[in-house]
Design a protein around this nucleic acid. Structure first.
Lengths: 243, 243
DNA sequence: CGCCGCATTGATCTTATTCAATCTGAGTGG
DNA sequence: CCACTCAGATTGAATAAGATCAATGCGGCG
């Protein structure tokens, strides 16, 4: 595991995530050895339109996957955390851009090699299929969240998704570090920064969360946040981040 | 090709699509023989939560893929037309429901058989991967459209997507038959029926389209519709329907 | 100290939703 | 055959939610 890295003067560096061992993913284990690649904060791993030569697995840091509309509006499609694959599903060229939000280390796998390996390992194709399928499900979740839900519901669903992600990784479900800016969250949820900020404030005054330095969110009332997310039962079918 | 079918009294029947030869898709050709299945209008091919035992290829008719939020709001994820695959990407159980919008004929393929075939045909896994990847790209397109765009932009993008789909099938790019209801369109674009209806009317009075019986849209000014869709250059990055 | 990026807060405006009424065409039954 | 019904579509008026415009606050870094 990469030692938590040399402090740079980069503002975004304070948002660095603790480097975690990548989850032992079905896919990783069956892949040939990948080369490491490190990109610094605010640097692109790849851009929309680039030939899709590699897929990557995030090992430390985090990456925003996004696309921009011709008029400049940006939609963030996913925040890739350690253990997540990016660049999968790109056919000939990447349909989205991948921007490191902090100094990020990735394992890279040439797609040519992937195709080669698939010829020997008959299960690899299906594993790739499974991996993209998960991303497809996540895209549908995001679609549900973004299309019909109110600002409060979107943000609540977002926080709960991060909470669950933390839980899955054995971290606290109530202490959430937001490595991304308000702008990023807004572009992910299809809102403006102002609305995101206002909604954070609303949750705070309602006692659902605590906020420290915009970065650290403490969930005070998970139950109520669930209600806020789902307008009804606190249960299922919320936003799932691809993970 | 199925003869354009026996007229039923079903209202939705008038919305039936002309039966087309399914596109000779990469995937279809490499699949073992599939059994035919016919479902009538307003009948489910499968429901959210059903075990994902089969994938299907639409041969005639059309199918709405949708999910519902706990509070009842519905998001249509895709309209599957002849040649389109549905049920792909479901891991253990279907994450969405598939409802036939008209009498629909499908070829069904058991997933168990798929896994079996993949063991012999090493390229099948990759083809499945490619197929889901296309759906992922389509989901991202829809996400872009639904999250940041105005009602006019959404509807314009939708009409253009159908126009392009027609073009790809060698049909008229200006005469668009809408086999789905306003409610369906609304649930696809994340709007209300009223807004959809108003926007149709707006396009009509602006001379962008003609409307006959809510079903038949004639594009009068493709250029202007492109502008309406993209607020800027009429070019790329619009809504693409998975097809 | 003062700049700069980011976040917050406020006031106003636009847009789509909501509520409600009307319209249309197709199927139904007297 | 015609009135009736019903589902889907359209239109209008009022409302609410978020976007936009604008100002201020905060924290780190030069």
């Amino acid at each position: 595991m990469l030692a938590t890295s040399h402090h740079t003067t980069e503002t975004a560096q304070r948002r660095n995530l603790p480097a975690l061992p990548p989850r032992t993913d079905d896919l990783t284990s069956s892949l040939p050895e990948g080369k490491s690649r490190v990109v610094s904060a605010k640097e692109h791993v790849y851009r929309e339109g680039d030939p899709a030569t590699h897929v990557y697995c995030v090992e430390a840091g985090h990456v925003c996957i996004y696309r921009v509309l011709p008029d400049g509006r940006r939609q963030i499609i996913n925040f890739a955390y350690p253990g997540d694959f990016i660049g999968l599903g790109a056919l000939r060229e990447h349909a989205a851009s991948a921007l490191a939000g902090a100094k990020t280390r990735l394992k890279s796998f040439p797609v040519a090699g992937l195709h080669e390996s698939a010829r020997h390992d008959t299960t690899l194709g299906l594993r790739l299929y499974t991996a993209v399928s998960e991303q497809l499900a996540a895209a549908h979740d995001l679609l549900m969240t973004v299309s019909h839900r109110s600002a409060s519901e979107r943000l609540a669903a977002f926080l709960l998704a991060l909470s669950r992600r933390n839980g899955r990784r054995g971290e606290s479900e109530c202490e959430i570090v937001l490595p991304m800016t308000r702008t990023d969250i807004a572009d992910f949820l299809g809102l403006t920064i102002e609305t995101v900020s206002r909604t954070f404030t609303k949750f705070r005054v309602e006692g659902l969360i605590d906020l420290e330095q915009c970065i650290l969110v403490t969930i005070r009332d998970l139950e109520a946040l669930g209600m806020a997310a789902g307008s009804g039962v606190p249960s299922e079918q919320q936003l799932k981040l691809a993970s």
